[in-house]
Nucleic acid binder design. Structure first.
Length: 587
RNA sequence: GGGGCGGUAGUUAAGUCGGUUAUAACGCCGGCCUGUCACGCCGGAGGCCGCGGGUUCAAGUCCCGUCCGUCCCGCCA
């Protein structure tokens, strides 16, 4: 018979000795020694050893013989101090001598071990049996951390006067530029809702409505190819503020971050440094720099202008750049390792990697041939900041290949060579983003989104040949090389908004069709406003050290956007499609 | 869309140059064991070698295609 539990498995200590308790949970492990049976009982709070020996009634000892791993049990018994404590167990000073043992639920043979310290099952198996995977301590810990993070954020928002307001899931296509998930309308055949890529437009409308401090922990949907750090549905901590200066948003954001890091890790987030977008690219090759280690990039474009080495000369002739960084103590790296790095940068479109080792005989390796006339090894070493025993890596080519190639390589080498300090969280703001970038066809598109406000001095440049130089009031917050949040001061003038649309060649009809409601709102007393959105999943994966977003989401999808647990997506009866007036073109 | 890695018992893995009965550990089933703590010992069952085609006297192994998982590029803030 099910009874009310008196304690959790994890909370029992020596101070409970003598107490009669009722605990419920899963049999993590059963050790049948014949005359005595030990069962390690697990619940969310920990584990405790249950013992059945001559002190236990015969019926309970009989039942214990039937128990296997992951059976669900109810134990009534007495807490006693162990005469042979287990130091490795939080409850190891005591055990429960069972007076009554009830099997509440049994199990089929398990597809994988829930109790093993290390997961040994393939991801596919884990995802199919997600409810079992989630019993594992690591995932329990991750979801608890996620709860703590969102709870801390909510408290911090509340303390700052923010209101949590929900926005629609069935809505209109938003402008982030990813593919939308669409939902057919039954009532309006041929018309579709889009799932929100973010609550962007709604939160701006809320500002127009006067809710001057809004936040939401919002689910967002983007139908794009996935990665370890990208899921088709993910969660943003979304916020928007009226009448803000840029610093106000940044300060609020820092408080939220500090609250989450404090709540989960007990870590104080200190001052967050600020770095310009162009500086970040120049020093690290990436707009989300990892500041936990060195190996900053050095620009050699000018110094190598006279180089006659074909890869360099060709790159420069094509308007490319030459950049380098130094791997401290890297001279001992094997040819095989360097070849691996070369292959790595090739994936980013770099032709190759020129390398040189600073040893007793000066600069050895292909790089020697690339030095321009008159530059000796010593001068080169001084230029890039290398010393004896170091390895210098140089990339030449289009900036769009050199920056990400060397930027990612810097991070990869730091990981490979164990140069990243553990349990360290370095945050930075990346500021002064360009407003526009060119897409593959050479057309301008918004780098952030088209509601980002240009800095006022640059508004006249919209639509002119200075488009590429227009800077925005946008800001990204980065932790350990990962963008965890981004936002901007928005455009609150219908006039400026229209100018931006025009500069992006979004014509009046399209403006009206897609964003008419926003333009209308901006024309009815819109306050200056701005905000930011955090990737909650990414924050939690940093907080927990998870390798993948899948490990911080209770029910994630695979890289082909399937849920192996529920087998979604799946086909539906033809009748359902008929009701929606939708026809599949797939046989 | 492109590339890398993987798919063999419930699970994780081994499987040589293509060769005769596909191997181990854990788990499972049966038995023994009164202080184990990843308990131990004895015995047993368990296989669509992802799927489809091809080459061959013979395919887990070689070839082609395909599906699934995962990582990366493209894509995506």
């Amino acid at each position: 018979m099910l009874e009310r539990r008196t304690h959790t498995a994890g909370e029992l200590r020596a101070t409970h000795a003598g107490a009669d308790v009722i605990v419920q949970g899963w049999a993590q492990n059963v050790r049948d020694r014949g005359g005595v049976v030990f069962i390690v009982l697990r619940d969310r709070y920990g584990t405790v050893q249950v013992t059945l020996d001559e002190r236990s009634p015969e019926a309970a000892r009989e039942t214990a013989k039937k128990v296997a791993q992951e059976y669900v049990l109810q134990v009534r018994g007495t807490v006693v101090e162990r005469f042979k404590p287990n130091e490795d167990m939080a409850t190891g000073a005591i055990e429960i001598v069972a007076k009554d043992l009830e099997i509440l639920s049994s199990t089929k043979p398990l597809p994988f071990s829930v109790s093993a310290a290390q997961v040994d099952a393939h991801e596919e198996t884990r995802l199919r049996y997600r409810f079992l995977d989630l019993r594992r301590a690591q995932l329990q810990h991750n979801l608890i951390a996620r709860h703590k993070a969102t709870h801390a954020a909510r408290q911090a928002f509340d303390a700052m006067g923010f209101l949590e307001i929900e926005t629609p899931i069935l809505t209109k296509a938003t402008p982030e530029g990813a593919r939308d998930y669409l939902v057919p309308s039954r009532v309006h055949p041929g018309q579709w809702y889009a799932l929100p890529q973010s609550p962007q437009l709604f939160k701006q409308l809320l500002m127009v409505s006067g809710f001057d401090r809004y936040y939401q922990i919002a689910r967002c949907f983007r139908d794009e190819d996935l990665r370890a750090d990208r899921q088709p549905e993910f969660t943003q901590i979304d916020l928007e503020v009226s009448f803000p200066t840029r610093d106000v948003i940044m300060e609020i954001t820092e408080r939220i971050v500090a609250a989450m890091w404090k709540a989960v890790l007990g870590v104080e987030v200190g001052e967050v440094q600020r770095i310009g977008f162009h500086e970040a690219i120049a020093r690290f090759g990436l707009d989300a720099p990892d500041l936990r280690f060195g190996m900053e990039h050095v620009d050699l474009t000018e110094a190598f202008a006279a180089s006659t080495f074909p890869p360099v000369a060709q790159a420069l002739a094509d308007g490319g750049i030459v950049k380098a960084f130094v791997v401290p103590g890297g001279a001992e790296a094997s040819r095989k390792v360097i070849d691996g790095w070369t292959a790595f940068v090739r994936t980013y479109g770099l032709g190759g990697l020129m390398w040189g080792k600073l040893g007793d005989d000066g600069l050895s390796g292909p790089l020697g041939k690339a030095l321009p006339e008159g530059m000796g090894p010593d001068a080169f070493a001084a230029l890039v900041g290398a010393s004896h025993g170091d390895l210098v890596l140089v990339g030449a080519g289009a900036a769009s290949a050199v920056h990400p190639g060397l930027g990612r390589l810097r991070v990869a080498i730091a990981k490979e060579r164990d140069m990243i300090p553990a349990d360290t969280y370095v945050f930075c703001w990346v500021l002064d983003f360009p407003m526009f970038e060119r897409d593959d066809d050479g057309n301008w598109q918004a780098m952030h989104h088209p509601f980002t406000s240009p800095i006022p001095e640059h508004i006249p440049w919209l639509g002119t040949d200075k488009m590429g130089e227009v800077l925005t009031n946008a800001y990204d917050i980065v932790c350990n090389g990962q963008e965890i949040g981004g936002g901007s001061i928005r455009i609150h003038s219908a006039e400026v908004q229209q100018k931006v649309f025009e500069a992006l060649r979004i014509g009046p009809d399209e403006q009206q069709d897609r964003f008419g409601f926003l333009l209308e709102a901006l024309a009815h007393g819109a306050p200056p406003h701005g905000g930011l959105a955090f990737g909650l999943d990414r924050c939690v994966s940093i907080l927990t050290g998870a390798d993948s977003l899948r490990d911080v989401i209770a029910f994630p999808k695979t890289t082909s956007a399937q849920c192996l647990l529920t087998d979604a997506p799946s086909s539906v009866p033809q009748a359902d499609l008929d009701v929606l007036k939708v026809r599949s073109t797939v046989p």
